[in-house]
Simulated assay, not measured.
Amino acid sequence: MRDDRQLWYRRPQRIVAIICALVGGLLIAFGPEARAMWWSNPVVTVEDALTIEALPTATATPLVVYVSGAVTAPDVYRLTPGARVIDALQAAGGLTEQADVSGLNLAAQVRDGEHIRVPYAGEVAAQAEVSETAGLINLNRASAAELEELPGIGATLAARIIERRETQGPYRSVAELREVSGIGEKLYSQIAPLVTIDP
């Protein structure tokens, strides 16, 4: 006759019951920390993956430039970063027949806020003539402070230069500076290239 009485460790039901009792005791003894350790799920769900993929990506800020002069449609245009001057001219509809791009670098990169002006034919030569006197101090219009920027000219000589034009009329040539007391040949040779009498 079979003996139904088996050792306790040979009965799986009792072993499972003992394990469950031990686990339950640990959860009760160590509280939420143990439960979190046992039941935490590090697996990323589909919803989490979709949320990560949906994060916004950084977008490049467009360049805003003003194109004027001898182009078909002068206006403000938005260009992609890294655009060149030629791209800005194409955005403005291209060049007119009167355009002169000899002084433009069509391959130069465009800067945000830049003003690109395409000169008309003949305008470049006129600008070159003006640039010859650009930055020169006009003896007939300069203030005392402007004259004092010249080498060797202090407050006293600046006042004498102004007094000369007020008492004897406008300077008719730069050489008339020699008539101002205190301006010798050496000083005159230093300041003559820096002044003009042009209106």
Rank of each mutant, 00 (worst) to 15 (best):
E149R: 01
E123C: 09
D75W: 10
V64T: 12
P119K: 08
T57R: 15
P151K: 10
V64E: 11
G184L: 03
V174P: 08
G103E: 14
A145R: 13
P119G: 14
R111L: 13
E166L: 14
G25S: 11
A58C: 04
Q168K: 14
E149F: 05
S68K: 06
A21V: 04
K186A: 15
L7A: 13
E53N: 10
R35N: 01
P62H: 02
T156N: 02
L136W: 05
L177P: 01
A142C: 01
A142Q: 00
N41G: 04
A58V: 12
R84P: 14
P199D: 07
L26Q: 13
T57L: 15
F30G: 05
L79I: 05
L157C: 08
L50V: 15
P42Y: 07
A134Q: 09
P56H: 04
A192T: 05
A70D: 00
A58S: 09
A29N: 10
I52G: 12
Q168E: 13
G69I: 04
A73W: 06
L95N: 02
V67Q: 08
V71D: 00
A83T: 00
E132V: 08
A73D: 07
D87L: 01
Q168G: 09
L187Y: 03
Y188R: 00
Y66E: 06
R178K: 14
P12F: 05
G69Q: 01
H115Q: 12
G69E: 07
V174H: 02
